[in-house]
Design a protein around this nucleic acid. Sequence first.
DNA 1: GCAAGGTC
Length: 686
Amino acid sequence: MVTKVLCVAEKPSIAKAVANHLAGGQVQTRNVQGNPYVKNYEFSYNFPTWGQCSVTMTSVLGHLTSHEFDPQYKSWRSCDPSALFEARIDTIVEDDKKPVAENIKRQAAYNKVLYIWTDCDREGENIGTEIRSVATQGNQSFRQPGNTVRARFSNIERAHIINAARSPVQLDEAQSNAVSARIELDLRIGASFTRNLTMSLQPMLQQRSGEDRSQVISYGSCQFPTLGFVVERYIRVRNFVPETLWGIKVMHEKDRIKVNFNWARGHLFDRMAVIILFERCLTAKTARVTKVQTKPTSKWKPLPLTTVELQKCGSRFLRLDSQRVMQVAEQLYQKGWISYPRTETDQFDRGMDLRALVQKQTQGGPWTQFAQDLMNGGFSQPRSGRNNDKAHPPIHPVNFVVPASLSQEEQRVHEFVVRRFLACCSQDARGSKTEISILYGSEIFNTSGLVVLEQNYLDVYPYDKWTSSQDLPDFREGEVFEPTEARMNEGQTSPPGYLTEPELIALMDANGIGTDATMAEHIAKIKDRDYVQTRPRARQQRQQGEEEEYEPAEAAEPDAGAGRGRGRGRARARGGRGGGAGRGGGATTGVQEFIPTTLGVALVEGYENMGFETSLTKPFLRKEMELRMKAICEGRKTKAEVVHESIEQYRDVYIRTQQRLDSLRAVTGTLVGTPGQNGILVSGTE
DNA sequence: GCAAGGTC
């Protein structure tokens, strides 16, 4: 008698891959009525645990169930928003998931073992328990521990999958409970604060703007900190006070080459001190070469590609915002050209056959020759980063596609993924760096030169720039010369720029705001809510010695009235009459910068003016949530305890918000609707 | 009309 096993994966692609690995060719594929993506794969397999089995492998599409308030709370006017802190929450299957749930229920009736193949992360454990609960409706016996198991796997290589099939483990209830807690808290707090903010502030907004569109003012544990980052930078720009600074410039011409030496101190904010040091230079008359050192140097090839990195590079190099990059990457994934685009992993599994993947890229495209060279001995194992989500490999091309068959945007993203992958499999660029130091008076000045000897990965990865500098003349240690030119210069510190999209993504990543799959959505959300606006950043004045930025091939878009360039936020001496910011001159870089609207600033300042110890706009609350989830995972706390203590914390903020809503109204009243500024607060320094 | 997280 064969045992019947029902396997359920988190997504159709995993179901298909696992079925093919286990079945060894003998697979019967059946459609599932009502859903075009989910398939049932039938085959037989000999599990060590149960012997020869008849297996049905299917999948869900992410979370199977949703959570909503009891219908009596559906209308916004049905209750005080704070009632949502304790309102009953129903677990339901949305209409579009019903065919998926029905399929599992029906299959469950015929099967003896439920084998869960969701991703091995917290959400995966939770989706696993959702699957078990739906399956149990069709077959009570899955309630018994031995009848429901899960697979432990971190990639879909054949050997790895077969090993996972041979050693089933239990679902991790604690991890699943941690996710349940997060779901409940996000729903209760998000819905109550959103209703309260919207109903309290909307009348004023409409009155001011004269519009009657129903604008939602939402609160979410991710969208608010995201807004907070944008506002914080904006305030820093607005409050920036330039400081005057002084430096010493030394130039010497030798062998018809002009060499600029940089003062080791950079600059000082004390004019008299610089005058004294400068005069010592002039008194000394001659400078002496104290160091001439030439040594090999290299520029490291990039790390394997994660989602966060893809989004940052998309903003920087491809002229696509993070949400668009993800949409395009998703399309490329579904068409089978690239691997799963949502991954935190920046290390390739040792067992992966990377050469086979490189080989596929020798079939065409502008990188053909480079890929061929890698196959002819240039291949080098990619570097390993520090992150591994144990669910997905780094993003890489999985097949060859003729670029012309893709849309324009798809081509850009695909080309980036391929070039990044080939760069990872190539070698670091190598060069030779010469450093020269001189002692002039009491002061040290340095200069350096670079000769790029081997481009290596740079040949396929134009997004990185590393170019040879002008040749340095021949200096000898101990050599004495009288500098051609020495002068004191005055400059000013320049303000930081507004937050750019790659910076925002980096901040969210570092502070655990959102996941690789959702960060772009949170950014899109605060734009959609009219909390922030974006505009192309004006091109920066290039500083001498600064690395060149990669510029997209397309012509720059016209400047959307931005007008002014911005400094980079680092103190830097500039020549001339202390002209602070560079002049954009109408040209823009590809990168977008974020500026909060009056509404966005009002929300953040309104909450901050209330002076709570728990700040809704700072990332700490989300970090706290992360710690509490971890406590549940490690069995130090129960879900009920965490939900209770978090709700009480937010209830406190809610009550005090209510009491101080006047403060919020007052600030909003002064800021919203500043005439003629299209909702953008202009910097106070302008 | 509300959140954030999966996935298509």
